[in-house]
C-alpha cells in the first residue's frame, strides 16, 4: 500500500481499541506532556463500550455469526492424554514440527508445600477481532463471514509470518510443504463441511474437555456451558481485546 492510500482508508475508530493500546497511549501522553491527564482525556470511549476484560461474551442473542462456532474447554478435566493432538495431526496433516493445538502444563501452588498440576489445551481462538487478520498484507488469512472461523487461503499466503507475530495465542506455524502458514480452522475443510458436528479434537477427547458447538444456539451445549451462573468462565489474554471464541471453565 502506498502512503497516499492510507488517507483513503476508513477510520477504524476508537471503539475497538484494546485496553493495552489505551494504556500505551496514556503512558505516551504522560511522558510527552508531563501533565497529569484527567479521566475525561483517558476515556477515549465510554467504559461501557470498551469491550475486552468485562464482556468476554457477546450480548445475549447478538452473536455476529450463524453458526457462531465456539469451543468451551473444561480445563480441570484435562489429563494431557494428548488424544486430541493425535486426532488433529492425523485429520489435518500436521507435520511433526508443527501444531494446530497444544497442551500447556503448569504447576499451581495450593499451599506452601503443595502443588497442583494444571493442563491447559490451547488452539486458535477464532477471535471476533482477530489481530492476525488485521495485519495480513495479502488477506490470506480472513474471518469467514458466515461462521466466524479464522481461515487460511494458502495460495495467497506469502509466508511473511506477520500473523504469527500478531497472534496473542501463538496458534500459527509455518508449514514447509505448502510454504504457507497453517493453523486450526475448527476442522472446517476436513470435517465440518462434510457434515460432521465436532472437530477431530473434540471427538477424540475421552474426558469431555473440549466442547464444540454453535454459541448462537441457546440450546447448544457450548451456550449452556458458558451460561452457568455458578461457574467462572474466562478467556486467555482478554487485555488484547481480540474477543476470543475459545472459553475456559471448570466443573
Amino acid at each position: 500500500m502506498k502512503n497516499m492510500d492510507f488517507e483513503k482508508l476508513s477510520n477504524e475508530g476508537t471503539e475497538t481499541l484494546p485496553s493495552e493500546e489505551r494504556r500505551r497511549f496514556l503512558r505516551f501522553g504522560l511522558s510527552v506532556t508531563g501533565v497529569f491527564l484527567g479521566g475525561s482525556v483517558l476515556s477515549l470511549t465510554s467504559a461501557r463500550d470498551a469491550l475486552g476484560i468485562s464482556d468476554i461474551l457477546p450480548d445475549a442473542k447478538k452473536f455476529p455469526y450463524k453458526p457462531h462456532y465456539s469451543m468451551v474447554i473444561i480445563q480441570n478435566r484435562c489429563v494431557d492424554c494428548e488424544r486430541c493432538m493425535e486426532a488433529c495431526t492425523k485429520t489435518n496433516d500436521v507435520p511433526s514440527y508443527g501444531y494446530r493445538t497444544k497442551i500447556l502444563d503448569q504447576k499451581r501452588d495450593l499451599g506452601p508445600s503443595l502443588q497442583e498440576q494444571v493442563f491447559m489445551p490451547v488452539l486458535c481462538n477464532h477471535c471476533n477481532r482477530p489481530p492476525c487478520v488485521r495485519v495480513c498484507p495479502t488477506t490470506a488469512t480472513y474471518k469467514d463471514k458466515t461462521n466466524g472461523i479464522v481461515m487460511m487461503d494458502y495460495k495467497r499466503c506469502i509466508g511473511c509470518k506477520t500473523c504469527m507475530a500478531a497472534c496473542p495465542y501463538n496458534a500459527r506455524y509455518f508449514k514447509e510443504t505448502n510454504r504457507a502458514i497453517d493453523k486450526c480452522n475448527f476442522c472446517f475443510d476436513t470435517r465440518l463441511s462434510k457434515g460432521e458436528k465436532l472437530t477431530a479434537c473434540a471427538a477424540a477427547c475421552p474426558a469431555g474437555v473440549r466442547n464444540f458447538g454453535d454459541l448462537s444456539d441457546t440450546e447448544s451445549n457450548v451456550y449452556k456451558l458458558v451460561h452457568r451462573p455458578d461457574k467462572v468462565v474466562w478467556v486467555l489474554r482478554p487485555e488484547t481485546g481480540a474477543l476470543p471464541n475459545v472459553f475456559y471453565t471448570t466443573d
Binding site: 492424554c81 494428548e82 511433526s96 514440527y97 497442551i103 493442563f119
Partner: peptide, 21 residues
Amino acid sequence: TSCHIGVQGYNKMMGVTAKHG
C-alpha cells in the same frame, strides 16, 4: 492430575526429550 501425569509427565519421568516442535 494427582495421578494423571499425561504424556508430558510420562516423558519427563522416562527422560524422553520432547519431539521437535
